[in-house]
Design a protein around this nucleic acid. Sequence first.
DNA 1: CCCGTGACTTGAACATGTTCAAGTGATGTG
DNA 2: CACATCACTTGAACATGTTCAAGTCACGGG
Lengths: 237, 237
Amino acid sequence: MTGVTTAAAEPDPADKPRRARGEQTRQLILETALRLFRERGYAETTMRAIAKEAGVAVGNAYYYFDSKEHLIQGFYDRNQVAHRAAAQEVLAAEKELAPRLRGVLHAGIDVNEPYHSFAATFFKTAAEPTSPLSPFSSQSSPAREAAIAIFRDVVEGSNAKLDPELRKELPELLWLGWMGVILFWVYDNSPGQRRTRRLIDGAVPLIDRLVSLSRLRVLRPALRQVLALIETVRKDD
Amino acid sequence: MTGVTTAAAEPDPADKPRRARGEQTRQLILETALRLFRERGYAETTMRAIAKEAGVAVGNAYYYFDSKEHLIQGFYDRNQVAHRAAAQEVLAAEKELAPRLRGVLHAGIDVNEPYHSFAATFFKTAAEPTSPLSPFSSQSSPAREAAIAIFRDVVEGSNAKLDPELRKELPELLWLGWMGVILFWVYDNSPGQRRTRRLIDGAVPLIDRLVSLSRLRVLRPALRQVLALIETVRKDD
DNA sequence: CCCGTGACTTGAACATGTTCAAGTGATGTG
DNA sequence: CACATCACTTGAACATGTTCAAGTCACGGG
């Protein structure tokens, strides 16, 4: 889920806050909502329950959040920040590409682990293409960029030597892979989501090997073909 | 969307129909629902509208279908059958692996094309892991098997020579790839979803090349590694 | 000090998916 | 032919996300 959000506040467009009183209410509602989501699950938490627990009227929640779904963004933001922090820790200690990538992926799962049971519940919300919460939506573009930046750091900060063209594309590809891991994780109900861990541990060496191979002259045409495909598919969005 | 459904009827467990009158009502409701979905979109079609249009009471729809979402299964079934038929036509005429795969994938998109605009709307329904409509759910297992069977035909019926281990796994992998294509297609709003077409045309030769390479002795270890990963990840579900 | 403005708050009303207790009628049985 | 059964049907009632017209209240201008 990390990397899927908008960081900005909704009602006040970053102007000088005329009266900051509202921001407090906004936070209160968000805190209450996230707590109830964690305690009871997303679907089981009604807007009325949130309002009542927060001590406000139902309509007030809708003054600050467009819909129930929009409350989820707060959750995204939080995990995004946490993943970023955890990733930095890994990246500061390791120079090899494979362990860097492996560490960042595991850190992402670590961060999301406590929320697995109810992440699945509202996963569909983010999956809908027209939803502003979709990881591919323009509304979550800044958060997506931030997430890709983590993987850029993974690549750039490593001592791996690789084809310059590939180097340029790799961060976004790795982010896409991360989305795939998240997708797998959401569907993974093995104890402690250990299958996801195994997927990471198994896939990282493969990616590492593949990436190293990218410099071999014999594989140059194949690499070109892959990059060309990406280019072709990306056009006219 | 093809390949995600249960084929069996719900209320009557395949016994001798005591009175077949109900089946007619069931069909009527399903037909009406799908028509309205197509005309107005999924979210915009209310259960009351379906009932009214079909000339029955709201509760009657719930006698035959557990929920509004379950009406979608009818749509799945239809497209699954259509895809199967279209695929057979392609497979009867072509022996090379690449064109076989390409043909089947394009056929799948062809079949779903008219529904792209509203497929996206209810896509999230299928994306929820706990939903019985999820392509990975046990409830849609028979439909999933049927879909995989198409890809088994793609592989088995081709004249491609490939590693026997890979040959065993390939159909399911291709189905997984097909799910990926569908995912891409749902998010693809380029005119006529031409990016999806390009993705298929670009990816198929790559897959074909990769599959051919699987027989090379030098790549044997890499192949083993991939197959081992699949095995590891699949365990304890 | 009063008043208007606009941010903030309220809760009733609405729309829609879903449930359920109460029918309705065809069918096989005595 | 009367009747019990049970598949099938009904529509009111319910739960919950969302909207909105009507406040309330702090603050700056007069």
